[in-house]
Computed example of a mutant assay.
Amino acid sequence: MSATIHRLNPGEPAPSIDGLMQLVAPELNAVNQIILDRMQSPVAVIPALAGHLISGGGKRLRPMLTLACARLLDYSGERHHKLSASVEFIHTATLLHDDVVDGSDLRRGKKAANLIWGNQATVLVGDFLFSRAFELMVEDGSLRVLKILSNASAVIAQGEVDQLMVARQIETSEEKYLQVITAKTAVLFAAACQIAGVVAERGEACEAALESYGRNLGIAFQLVDDAIDYMSDAETMGKGQGDDFREGKLTLPVILAYRRGDEEARRFWRDAMEGRRTSDDDLAEAIERLKSSGSVADTLARARHYGELAIDAIADMPPGSAKTALMETVRFAIARAF
């Protein structure tokens, strides 16, 4: 592995995901067709509810990573098309379940599916999509692929339960937080990248490099998401500003602000995370406290660190448009906060 650290400077021109999208555009069309075909059902509510989210403006980042990593390895087959669709189904299923658990009002800037069709139908359609994901894995026929993606699905579920258990627990440590976001977010990024190494038959070292790229990108991605919950508006985020605050989610900005605060500040954060201070004025106070403590800035600094690790993980891969696009994707994920 190269010892070079590819620094991510927030002062550089804003990165774009366009290179990744252009790189995989023809293959992504094939993946989208598989997604469309496999979400169909004679039970009309299933394609309607699934389509509400799947067609709701998501960038298909995880399946695009699978396609781009396969391109990086010069894989010329088509196995990764179905596997990319499987990855997207896993992701969509978890989003549907999350919105029920969190009681969310918005998802990708639209009314959350559970508010339209109800919690029961939303959970069951999520289960349907999980089943479709596993059908696609089985059709691929690789036990290694099945092991990677099935393990990712189990770890994601564990991460969501773990997050539920630490909700409103103000003493949650930074280490525990990183464990939770690795499970609920980064593991699927890692699996999406690693399976490209499996289908290209490049061996364990290559798989490990792609897994590291995806995992560190996923951690950086979630750190930025948790920071911009306090920095952006609903239109930009696709969800309500301060949702994490009102739900008592212990994200890194809050963990750092609580740890750095005096007794008065700690009392505020205890009251807020335990649900006693959730008004708009309380949110405004929380944002000011996060700024003054440097907690958001330091969360983003950590995101840049994990982004550097992601870029370094593929430093020894052959140069070309795929490598450039994957490196730019890391920069894009972090630049969303600037």
Rank of each mutant, 00 (worst) to 15 (best):
residue 168 R to K: 15
residue 183 A to H: 07
residue 183 A to E: 06
residue 124 L to R: 06
residue 117 W to N: 05
residue 170 I to V: 15
residue 154 A to F: 08
residue 113 A to N: 12
residue 128 F to Y: 15
residue 116 I to K: 12
residue 155 V to M: 09
residue 139 E to F: 12
residue 163 Q to Y: 01
residue 173 S to C: 05
residue 183 A to V: 02
residue 184 K to A: 11
residue 162 D to L: 10
residue 163 Q to I: 01
residue 146 L to F: 11
residue 144 R to K: 13
residue 181 I to V: 10
residue 172 T to K: 08
residue 142 S to A: 11
residue 123 V to R: 03
residue 167 A to T: 15
residue 112 A to M: 01
residue 190 A to D: 02
residue 183 A to N: 04
residue 177 Y to K: 04
residue 184 K to C: 09
residue 173 S to Q: 07
residue 141 G to E: 04
residue 129 L to V: 04
residue 102 D to P: 10
residue 190 A to G: 00
residue 176 K to A: 13
residue 129 L to E: 00
residue 190 A to I: 04
residue 196 A to F: 02
residue 138 V to M: 09
residue 110 K to R: 15
residue 113 A to C: 13
residue 105 D to T: 07
residue 150 S to W: 11
residue 121 A to S: 15
residue 196 A to D: 06
residue 144 R to F: 00
residue 119 N to D: 15
residue 152 A to Y: 00
residue 129 L to Q: 02
residue 173 S to Y: 03
residue 181 I to T: 04
residue 104 S to M: 04
residue 160 E to G: 06
residue 156 I to P: 04
residue 102 D to K: 13
residue 114 N to T: 11
residue 104 S to H: 02
residue 154 A to G: 04
residue 123 V to H: 03
residue 181 I to W: 06
residue 174 E to H: 09
residue 149 L to A: 11
residue 115 L to D: 01
residue 141 G to S: 11
residue 137 M to P: 03
residue 113 A to I: 11
residue 126 G to V: 03
residue 133 A to D: 08
residue 190 A to F: 01
residue 134 F to I: 07
residue 196 A to H: 01
residue 193 C to N: 05
residue 109 G to Y: 05
residue 118 G to Q: 00
residue 146 L to E: 05
residue 136 L to M: 08
residue 151 N to M: 06
residue 199 V to F: 11
residue 148 I to N: 10
residue 182 T to Y: 00
residue 135 E to L: 10
residue 195 I to V: 13
residue 124 L to W: 07
residue 137 M to E: 15
residue 192 A to D: 01
residue 194 Q to I: 01
residue 138 V to F: 08
residue 192 A to I: 02
residue 128 F to V: 12
residue 109 G to D: 12
residue 198 V to E: 14
residue 152 A to Q: 05
residue 139 E to A: 15
residue 131 S to P: 02
residue 194 Q to D: 02
residue 142 S to T: 08
residue 120 Q to M: 13
residue 198 V to W: 01
residue 118 G to N: 00
residue 138 V to I: 12
residue 196 A to L: 06
residue 134 F to E: 09
residue 171 E to M: 05
residue 122 T to C: 11
residue 166 V to S: 14
residue 145 V to L: 08
residue 132 R to I: 09
residue 114 N to F: 12
residue 109 G to C: 11
residue 112 A to G: 02
residue 130 F to W: 07
residue 140 D to W: 08
residue 145 V to F: 10
residue 142 S to I: 09
residue 134 F to V: 14
residue 187 V to S: 04
residue 148 I to Q: 11
residue 192 A to Q: 00
residue 112 A to K: 11
residue 176 K to N: 14
residue 133 A to T: 12
residue 112 A to C: 08
residue 124 L to P: 02
residue 197 G to T: 00
residue 184 K to M: 06
residue 112 A to V: 08
residue 116 I to Q: 13
